[in-house]
Design a binder for these strands. Structure first.
Length: 747
DNA sequence: CTTCGGCCGCTTTAGACAGCATGTC
DNA sequence: CTAAAGCGGCCGAAG
């Protein structure tokens, strides 16, 4: 289809497409237009990644905005994707459209999304906006749900499902466009959303799947190519080398962080000979940047690998590490990235070849190694082939025996992805969504609730109410008993507490746990509070290693006084979870006692990125705890606030005031304190040469900080550092004049 | 007496959203 | 209930 023939898109759109080098639509896109995406019709597009899904959504959003002046909402599963999409859509600002992002940690323009035409948000954020009754929601005329196949996810799927159902019921004229990977039952999704279906496996660039075994690559079409394993190479190394000989890069998916790291280390010797001197120089620069992000073992290992043209990528990395690796890989500087599934679901990092080395992954709940789903493997494989740059893409599984070769072909290469199934009937999901549905007025009786749930994918797929009804009744009981809602006959009303919990976006069970723990707390310590929020279902658990059980049982006895609520017996069910929460609490306490990052990562066996995510969650939950304590008049506000500010900045109590100054973090606050500047007020009046000395002579930094503290005259002109002030200078980095303004959240 | 290499057995194991109000070293 | 890589400890042989 010619771009000129697309109905109802704004006039400038054709010019825009041409400027992007697009003169004809891909077949699935053309089919979407024929099904009426530009005319406000609902659509489910189940097509492979990188085959133009974004353009389908753009067609829908732009035509919908042009048609009635409404707004479009683009829902993504990850914050990183929200940023990526926002940057992509920012191109439309030139044509007079306003684009904004809204996620938990970032809201464009002070939260005033009302004036935006296109809003990008995570599903949880949209859910929260619906709960808080954001006024602009009624102006929505188009909603796009990216990666809808994630409704299958037991943890986060139900949120997406409920949110889409709520948006549709808020505004029956709303156009819904759902983008999905190729799945077994796209027709069911279409039926649920009352949408037309475009179901296609068409790709703009050929993808050949295959299995490597012995010295050969066995491809889907029956052909084989020789990819011999030489010397002490393993199979992935042989494939990576073979790809490099054609000047292509490789993405290797493995099943654990440790495997990713060790595979990257090994592959370094394969990639190094293929890096030109100029590339080596650039790689060294990237490696230096990586070392600067964090002073930990993980960081150093990554930098070492990068110097050789290899890298690993997993969730233990800091956000900056990840984006440095992704960027260098896209620039073809890094030749191979060994990754856990983070990269398959995350931002766009295509590669000539993809190797799926491990096809089984440990799963504690299933009691051992479990095969990956076809959908997941296909998603990884779909990363092969960069449109417009590679002639084709190849995705390869690795077999160690002839039997495995056959099995992999059967199981993944020729297999259809499994159908997507709603996980809404699980109790934890319903707990939070039922409360929210009642609190935000979507339903005010048992019947109303069931009617609403009737509009979800779950109802579409099961057809019978029985199972759902039982769970719903259990959940209503739970919410009633814990004081989140009240029942009168079949009528349901959310209590004040219920409203608060729903607004705070807290799992009701977390709220109950927190309230229960706070109720008879008199002077809660930081550790006690950290433990309380750590044992909440909203906090992701740390793994207990061998020896940990003993260590933390001891700690539990030593500091029993501080721990809130009853200490469970060692033989009780749930004792392990309780201990694991204690481990998390201890980690947070260490962080809030100014323990060094590398000491923490080593002690708890985690990566720098993990500290950040724990700290983030704790901060959020303590904020919620403070609201709950206020709501209940428990008078613990100051204690909770102090614990929260301490984790937020990673400092002891005496530095909380100083660390609150913009530009002053845990390290600078400590150094200022050591020189006798102990509070924000003292900093405001401080002797400048003293401040400069405390900051080890960095004038620009000192000026910024004094300005932020409200100093009368922050200028550092002709100020010399006070020679009497000594600061411990354990860091080796050169005084920088470049102001690195990445933030704590990027850490 | 020290050092190196190989083998055996024990240990460990993916991911990451949200309130609110602003930003490290 | 299922696996497999990596690492540390141990042992023996070589230096």
């Amino acid at each position: 289809m010619d771009v000129a023939d697309i109905p109802r898109v704004p006039d400038w759109f054709q010019g825009y497409l041409e400027s992007e080098g697009i003169d004809a639509l891909y077949p699935p896109q053309a089919e979407a237009v024929e099904r009426g995406v530009t005319e406000g019709d609902n659509l489910v597009a189940a097509i492979p990644t990188a085959s133009g899904k974004t353009l389908v959504s753009t067609l829908a959003m732009l035509s919908s905005i042009a048609d009635g002046g409404g707004k479009a909402l683009y829902i993504v599963p990850l914050r990183a994707l929200a940023t990526e999409k926002n940057e992509e859509f920012a191109a439309f600002e030139e044509y007079g459209l306003d684009v904004g992002v809204s996620t938990g940690n970032y809201e464009s323009d002070g939260g005033w999304l009302a004036g935006k035409d296109i809003i990008v948000a995570t599903s949880e954020k949209v859910d929260s906006l619906v709960r808080n009754d954001a006024p602009w929601l009624e102006d929505l005329s188009c909603v796009v749900a990216d990666e809808v196949h994630l409704v299958d996810d037991s943890h986060r799927g139900p949120t997406l499902e409920v949110t889409l159902a709520k948006l549709q019921s808020l505004n029956p004229d709303l156009q819904t466009v759902a983008l999905s990977a190729t799945i077994g039952n796209a027709d069911e999704l279409a039926a649920w959303l009352d949408a037309d279906l475009v179901d296609s496996t068409w790709r703009p660039i050929e993808l050949e799947k295959g299995v490597h075994f012995g010295d050969a690559l066995h491809l889907e079409d029956g052909t084989q190519s020789r990819v011999p394993v030489r010397g002490n190479e393993d199979q992935p190394a042989a494939i990576v080398r073979d790809t490099l000989e054609e000047d292509g890069s490789t993405l290797v998916f493995v099943n654990s962080r440790r495997n990713a790291e060790s595979a990257a280390r090994r592959l370094g010797s394969t990639t190094e000979p293929f890096c030109s001197p100029a590339e080596k120089e650039q790689l060294t620069a990237v490696a230096d940047e990586i070392r600067e992000v964090s002073d930990t073992e993980t960081s150093g290992d990554l930098a070492d690998a990068v110097e050789q043209g290899a890298a690993f990528h997993h969730a233990g990395l800091a956000r900056d590490h990840r984006s440095l690796v992704e960027e260098a890989f896209r620039d073809r500087l890094i030749k191979v990235v060994c990754a856990t599934p983070t990269l398959a679901a995350g931002v766009n990092t295509p590669s000539r070849r993809v190797v799926v080395r491990d096809w089984r992954r440990y799963d504690g709940t299933a009691g051992g190694m479990q095969p990956l789903s076809v959908l997941e493997v296909h998603q990884m494989m779909g990363r092969a082939g960069r449109p417009g740059r590679d002639p084709y893409g190849e995705a390869v599984l690795v077999a160690k025996s002839h039997d495995e070769l056959d099995e992999l072909f059967e199981r993944y290469v020729w297999a259809e992805p499994e159908p997507v199934e709603s996980k809404l009937a699980a109790e934890p999901a319903l707990r939070t969504h039922i409360l929210a549905t009642v609190a935000s007025g979507f339903a005010n009786s048992r019947g109303g609730l069931l009617d609403f749930l009737e509009s979800t994918l779950y109802a579409e797929q099961t057809g019978e109410r029985g199972r759902l009804e039982t769970v719903v009744d259990d959940v209503i009981d739970y919410l009633d008993v814990n004081g989140f809602l009240t029942r009168e006959g079949t009528d349901l009303t959310a209590t004040n507490l219920g409203h608060t919990v729903s607004r705070l976006y807290l799992d009701p069970m977390s709220a109950a746990e927190i309230l229960h723990g706070l109720e008879d707390a008199e002077e809660p310590t930081a550790l006690g509070l950290y433990h309380l929020v750590s044992r909440t279902p909203d906090m992701y658990e740390l793994y207990l290693r061998s020896g940990d059980e003993e260590e933390f049982t001891m700690l539990a006895y030593e500091r029993e006084e501080e721990l809130l609520g009853a200490t469970p017996s060692e033989f009780e069910d749930g004792f392990e979870d309780w201990l694991s929460a204690l481990k998390t609490a201890r980690l947070l306490e260490d962080w809030a006692s100014e323990k060094e990052e590398d000491e923490i990562t080593e002690r708890y066996g985690i990566g720098p990125g993990d500290i950040r995510s724990k700290v983030d969650t704790a901060q959020w939950l303590l904020g919620a705890a403070e609201s709950l304590a206020t709501e209940r008049d428990l008078g613990l506000g100051p204690d909770i606030r102090e614990a929260r500010t301490r984790v937020e900045h990673g400092v002891r109590a005496e530095l909380v005031d100083l660390a609150g100054v913009r530009g002053v973090g845990r390290k600078r606050a400590r150094r200022l304190f050591e020189t006798g500047i102990e509070t924000r007020a003292e900093l405001r009046e401080a002797d400048k040469s003293r401040v400069l000395a405390a900051l080890r002579g960095r004038e620009k930094t000192a000026e910024t900080i004094l300005e932020n503290a409200g100093h009368r005259d922050p200028s550092m002109k002709s100020v010399e550092p006070d020679a009497d002030v000594t600061v411990d200078d354990d860091e080796t980095d050169e005084p920088t004049t470049t102001q690195d303004q990445s933030n704590l959240g990027d850490f």
